[in-house]
Amino acid sequence: MDSLMSSPIFGVMLSAIAFEIGNILYNKTKVSLFNPLLISQVLIIAILSKFKISFNDYNMGGQIISFFLIPSTVILAVPLYKKIKLLKAYSIPIIGGIAAGSISGIVSIILLSKLFHLDKVLLSSLVPKSVTTPIGMEISKQIGGIPAVTVASIVATGIIGSVIAPYICKMFKITDEIAVGIAIGTSSHAIGTAKALEIGEVEGAMSGLAIGVAGLVTVFAAPLIIRLCQALSIL
């Protein structure tokens, strides 16, 4: 039993089974709060705690899953390719909207961090919260954050975004398919994009586009905005 738990197979199988349970629960209830990723995280934490399994043993399999993050993100370009005519027709408002969303996300984190007196390291770790994990980890390293904290904030942002985004769009009567997709993808990256794909193909395609563009904008904007805030003695 100990040899199985210290094997990478254990982490992969536990993750797959926990996610499948979450997926079944979500498909039966269709309640946004029962996000498969959130349910799987709760189950995995509970199992590791109950049976006193170390995170290092579990993470040997987790690292294998993490390896596939980048190619799985690239696959999101498929629905975008199907809607390439929309991108060409509305390229300026689409790119402008993603850029505005990304920059406002960075600025809001800085302002809230100042409000709650967070230190610079934690602030830097939270800045890339709205981009996909591989990009966010590299940005975090670049600006002096803690990648592990960044990953946690990215997952939390994605889950929260996928849960509340549809309600916010309804609340503010945002019905345009392109606008909905761009908003979800810019604010809650790949996890939000999975929800956008459920809403519609156009929303999913635009959300997939937003992941890549938001990542690029954040790579360049985050260090510049932080340096500007330091120069203005805001940080």
Rank of each mutant, 00 (worst) to 15 (best):
L126V: 05
S7I: 07
E138F: 08
I178Y: 01
K129C: 00
I159Y: 01
S187T: 14
G101I: 00
L122M: 15
L224F: 15
N35S: 03
I17E: 07
P166K: 14
Y167P: 04
S124H: 14
V155G: 14
T150E: 11
I184P: 14
N59I: 05
K129R: 06
L69C: 06
P79Y: 05
I75H: 02
G136T: 08
V74Q: 08
L197F: 03
A156S: 15
N27C: 06
D2T: 04
I226C: 05
T175P: 10
F51S: 04
A205E: 13
G181W: 04
G62Q: 08
L112T: 09
I135Y: 04
P128W: 06
S140T: 07
S104R: 07
S66Y: 04
L228A: 15
F55D: 03
S124G: 09
M60C: 11
V42C: 08
A100Y: 01
L37S: 05
F55P: 03
G96T: 09
K88Y: 10
K170H: 10
G212Q: 05
K173Q: 14
I178S: 03
V107W: 00
L228Y: 02
G204M: 14
L235P: 00
S104W: 04
S124Y: 14
A148L: 05
N27Q: 15
L25C: 05
D176W: 07
C169I: 14
P134H: 05
S162R: 01
F19Y: 09
K170V: 09
L209N: 02
S54L: 11
S113D: 10
I44Q: 06
E177V: 08
H117V: 06
G11S: 10
A205T: 10
A210N: 07
F10I: 08
T29Q: 10
V219W: 06
F220C: 06
I94K: 13
A210Y: 08
E20A: 05
G145F: 10
I44C: 11
T132S: 14
F172L: 13
A183Q: 03
E20Y: 07
F55A: 08
I92R: 12
A46L: 05
L86E: 00
M5W: 03
K120D: 11
E138G: 12
L209A: 08
I211T: 15
N27H: 15
A18W: 07
I146F: 13
E203Y: 12
I110T: 06
H189L: 00
G212E: 02
L122K: 15
P79F: 02
A99Q: 01
I174W: 10
P166V: 03
V107A: 00
G161Y: 02
S130C: 07
P36L: 03
C229I: 01
A89P: 10
G204W: 13
S6H: 15
I39C: 11
I17M: 07
A148E: 13
K30I: 04
A89D: 13
G11Y: 11
I47S: 02
L14D: 12
R227G: 05
G185E: 03
A205L: 13
V74T: 03
V78L: 02
V131S: 01
Q41Y: 08
C229A: 15
G181I: 08
S188N: 10
I182W: 04
S102F: 02
S188G: 13
I70H: 09
D176I: 07
V217G: 02
Q41V: 04
E177Y: 09
I106L: 00
S6N: 15
I109M: 12
M137D: 00
V127T: 09
I110D: 02
I98E: 01
